[in-house]
């Protein structure tokens, strides 16, 4: 299947989902007014990926900001990965910057809701 690449904007993240190596990355800002619209192709891609996934799937979430409407879509994405468990070894890396307690806490929230391993990764500011 084709890889999914979306260039980031002021309100939407950079998406690079690679089906060949199973590495899926979300980076930047996710604050669109209507996140359903933005995440539709992302969810669609995942729906097709989970039918024939890589042996390993790694989702890297490295968001600087995300709004509450995006957080719902992140749950949708993580739910897709939950369903993968038997066919692929799934891992999620939740990156947060030093002193960004809110982003760290958000990661913890997802960790408690989602049944795939979420590793918290502290990223030092440039």
């Amino acid at each position: 299947m084709e890889n999914l690449t979306l260039e980031g904007s002021a309100k939407t993240p950079t998406v690079s989902f690679d089906s060949d190596n199973g590495v899926l990355e979300l980076k930047g800002r996710s604050i669109p007014e209507n996140s359903i619209e933005f995440y539709k192709p992302v969810i669609n891609w995942l729906d097709s990926y989970i039918t024939d996934p890589n042996h390993h799937t790694l989702l890297v979430i490295k968001l600087e900001y995300f709004n509450t409407s995006s957080s719902k879509c992140l749950v949708e994405i993580l739910r897709r990965l939950e369903s993968l468990k038997e066919q692929s070894i799934v891992k999620v890396k939740w990156c947060y910057e030093e002193e960004d307690e809110d982003m760290q806490e958000s990661g913890e929230d997802f960790k408690e809701i989602i049944k795939v391993p979420i590793e918290m990764v502290l990223v030092r500011e440039n």
Binding site: N34, I36, T68, S69, S71, K72, C73, V75, D109, E112
Partner: peptide, 26 residues
């Protein structure tokens, strides 16, 4: 607030406008 946020995040669905009902809690 954390528990309530998590509950709505886990259970609720998005409206057609993409609003989650999480805004005020957040």
């Amino acid at each position: 607030l954390k528990a309530y946020y998590k509950k709505v995040l886990n259970e609720g669905s998005l409206s057609s406008k993409g609003t989650a009902g999480l805004g005020m809690i957040d």
